Amino acid sequence: MKETLANANFPRDGEGRVYHIGVRYGEVANRILTVGDPARAKAIARWLDTESDSGKPVFTNQSHRGFLTITGRYKGVPVSIMAIGMGNCMMDFFVRETRAVTTGTLAIIRFGSCGSLSQNAPTGSIVIPQGGYCIRKNLEYFVKEKNRLFKGPVEPYMISGVFDADEEMSAILTKELEKAIEPISGKHGVGSVIANGLNADGCSFYSSQGRKDPAFWDDNDSVIQEALSAHPETVSLEMETSMLFHLAECAREQNPIKAAGCMQVFADRIGNGFIHPDTVAVLEPAVGKAVLEALIQVQVDNEMSEEGTVWQTTASEA
């Protein structure tokens, strides 16, 4: 930490940069593509307009907490590509702090990877969930009995209800992904687009996703079956997309957020298979470009003026 921060409730430095993602007003656009892996973000950023096309160089910021922000224009429309790492808390940092440095409606599409809980979604498929729910380890269950706050019986895992994805954005995303995948579907291990069903978010890659780790007591033998019993429409399992849907639903009416998501199926949790790197090399660029195509079609209300932003064009500066 190099700057003195103000407001312990929502820290910012003297330039107005939020603490974790390290950006300020004018550095993040209303339309955002978010990923976990910074290498994926950089690869997608090659589709952005060049400086000669847009009149402005692409803006890049790497925060001290590992968040990468890349902002520019795609086909003339301001967009940001943001790499946030893995897990629910990273999604929480990203959504809340991005919301704090922007105005108007935010349109966020997450492009990630997932495990499959459906025979209809083998590795190489692309899932666009209609909604998502969360699986949380109930820490009270794992407290020594003498130290428990609650003396009655408790379950080791809690499964939430469903948080909806934005229907309009999901429909646009489906159309663009089907168009992008059609020429390569069935080749190099690339599967089809699955635009239905639910996504499950685990609070961990291990315990709440039902993976077996002999070094720890997780009591998770039945957690996946319990999730499927509660939500039989479940297709995918990961750690971020349902949290995005949840935060979008919790956004105040005066600061709305639209959210959608798509995931490449990397792991077949039913057949215990994993995607081949050659498939990823073919699939990932196609999906990344399709998400950008979808984003620029999304209508956002009260979009930020470009004056003073990192995407302000030379013409508007004059």
Rank of each mutant, 00 (worst) to 15 (best):
Y141F: 12
L237Q: 12
V235L: 08
C89S: 13
L237M: 13
G202L: 00
K56C: 14
T102P: 06
A45E: 02
L106D: 13
P256C: 12
L106Q: 04
F205Q: 05
I44P: 02
F142W: 05
E306M: 12
E226F: 15
G16D: 03
T103I: 15
R40E: 00
G152A: 07
V190G: 01
L149T: 13
S52T: 13
L139G: 15
G76W: 10
A45R: 01
V95D: 01
V77C: 15
L106F: 02
Y157H: 12
T123N: 02
H246G: 05
P153F: 04
T98Q: 09
N272E: 12
S192L: 13
A248D: 00
I44M: 01
W311A: 12
G308Y: 07
P57N: 08
E284K: 01
L48D: 02
E97D: 11
Y157V: 15
V298F: 05
C114N: 00
V77T: 09
A45I: 02
I126S: 00
V162S: 11
F93W: 06
Q225S: 14
M82E: 14
P153K: 14
N9R: 15
Q130W: 04
A259H: 04
N199D: 09
T102A: 03
L139M: 11
I224E: 10
T60M: 08
E240G: 07
R40K: 08
G104I: 13
S125P: 03
S236L: 00
W217P: 08
R148G: 03
R73T: 12
A107G: 14
S236W: 06
K2I: 12
H64T: 13
Y25R: 11
K151I: 07
S236N: 10
Q130E: 10
S80W: 09
V79H: 04
N30R: 12
C250Q: 08
Y133D: 06
V28F: 15
P122G: 08
R148H: 06
D221Y: 09
I275L: 06
A281V: 11
I172M: 04
E284V: 06
G115T: 09
D13L: 03
S170C: 02
T309V: 01
E3P: 08
R99T: 04
I224W: 03
K151Q: 07
Q297E: 10
V18H: 03
I194Q: 00
N272W: 08
G36R: 08
